[in-house]
C-alpha cells in the first residue's frame, strides 16, 4: 500500500522534473558532432592515403598505422589539456572516433598518476576503456566460434 503510494508520487515527480528540465539543444549538438567527427575521419583518410600510396602498405596495415597515428595525436592533445575542450564542443563527434577511445585511456591514466605507477596509472588506465576491450574482444571470439560451428555443420 505504502509502496504503491510512493511509486505514484515518484512518477508524478518525474513528470514535474521532466516538464521543468532545461532542454539540450539537439540540433546544434548534432551539427557539431557531425562536423568534428567528419573532420577526424578526413584526417584518418589522409593518413590512410599516405600509408597506402606513399609507403605502399596493404589495406589492413594502412588502417592499423592510421589508428596508431590518431591515437598518438589524441594522447598528445589529451596531455596538453586540449582534447577535453574539443569534447566539450563536439560531444560524440570526438568520443566515437578511435581518438575518443584513446582519450578515455589517457585521461584516467593521467588523473590517477598521484595514486602511483602500478595501482594508479597501471590499474586505472582501462577503468573507462576496459569495457570496450572486454566487449569488443569477447564478441569477436563469439563470432569466430559461431563461424567455426557453421563450418563444422556446413
Amino acid at each position: 500500500m505504502q509502496d504503491a503510494k510512493n511509486r505514484k508520487e515518484a512518477q508524478r515527480y518525474a513528470e514535474l522534473v521532466a516538464r521543468l528540465a532545461p532542454k539540450s539543444e539537439m540540433g546544434q549538438g548534432m551539427a557539431r558532432a557531425f562536423l568534428v567527427g567528419g573532420l577526424i575521419c578526413v584526417l584518418g583518410q589522409m593518413l590512410t592515403d599516405f600509408f597506402s600510396m606513399r609507403m605502399r602498405f596493404g589495406a589492413q596495415s594502412a588502417a592499423t598505422a592510421t589508428s596508431i597515428c590518431l591515437i598518438f595525436l589524441s594522447a598528445l592533445l589529451t596531455g596538453l589539456g586540449l582534447y577535453d575542450r574539443i569534447g566539450k564542443f563536439a560531444g560524440a563527434g570526438s568520443i566515437v572516433p578511435i581518438t575518443g577511445f584513446a582519450n578515455s585511456v589517457v585521461a584516467p591514466a593521467m588523473e590517477f598518476r598521484r595514486e602511483g605507477l602500478v595501482m594508479g596509472v597501471g590499474a586505472k588506465m582501462f577503468s573507462l576503456a576496459g569495457p570496450v576491450l572486454v566487449y569488443g574482444i569477447g564478441s569477436s571470439i563469439i563470432v569466430g566460434l559461431i563461424a567455426f560451428a557453421l563450418e563444422v555443420i556446413g
Binding site: 539537439m26 557539431r32 567527427g37 563527434g93 566515437v96
Partner: peptide, 10 residues
C-alpha cells in the same frame, strides 16, 4: 564519419 558520430550524439 560525421553521420556515425551524429547518431552517437543523439
Amino acid at each position: 564519419g560525421g553521420l556515425i558520430c551524429m547518431i552517437g550524439e543523439a
